[in-house]
């Protein structure tokens, strides 16, 4: 598996107090732990279990994921922006790996 790479869509600009829509997608098989390989052995679970969005250090949105979230997990949610700043997105893998992305937004 190539290292999961996040894709994030955040508007570059917004007006003060605007509620913006954020979309994120990350490549990951989300192995459910219920499938079997060709020899009939259970393939161990390995999923992204947590996704988090913060704005300048403050939590905006978080999601706990179970194996029923589809492969290449997609998240769409909102954020209210009052000032320019940086969004930080974090995905936590069952194996402890952390995948991150940062996006700046200018509020006029």
């Amino acid at each position: 598996m190539a290292t999961p790479k996040p894709r994030v869509k955040v508007p570059k600009k917004a007006s003060k107090g605007e509620v913006i829509t954020i979309k994120t997608l990350i490549s990951h098989p989300m192995e459910s732990g219920q499938r079997k390989d060709k020899e009939g052995n259970l393939i161990p679970r390995q999923i992204i279990n947590t996704f988090k969005c913060e704005f300048d250090g403050q939590l905006v949105f978080e999601c706990d994921m179970d194996p029923a979230v589809s492969a290449n997990p997609y998240m769409e949610f909102n954020a209210k922006v009052e000032n320019s700043g940086t969004f930080k997105f974090t995905w936590v893998d069952d194996d402890g790996s952390i995948y991150e992305s940062e996006n700046k937004i200018t509020v006029e």
């Binding site: 190539a2 790479k5 894709r7 869509k9 979309k23 997608l25 990350i26 490549s27 492969a71 290449n72 997609y74």
Partner: peptide
């Protein structure tokens, strides 16, 4: 084109 999961593989292909 953002939601389409196939675009993840386009990006990987470019790498």
């Amino acid at each position: 084109s953002f939601q389409n999961p196939g675009m993840l593989y386009v990006e990987r292909g470019e790498e």
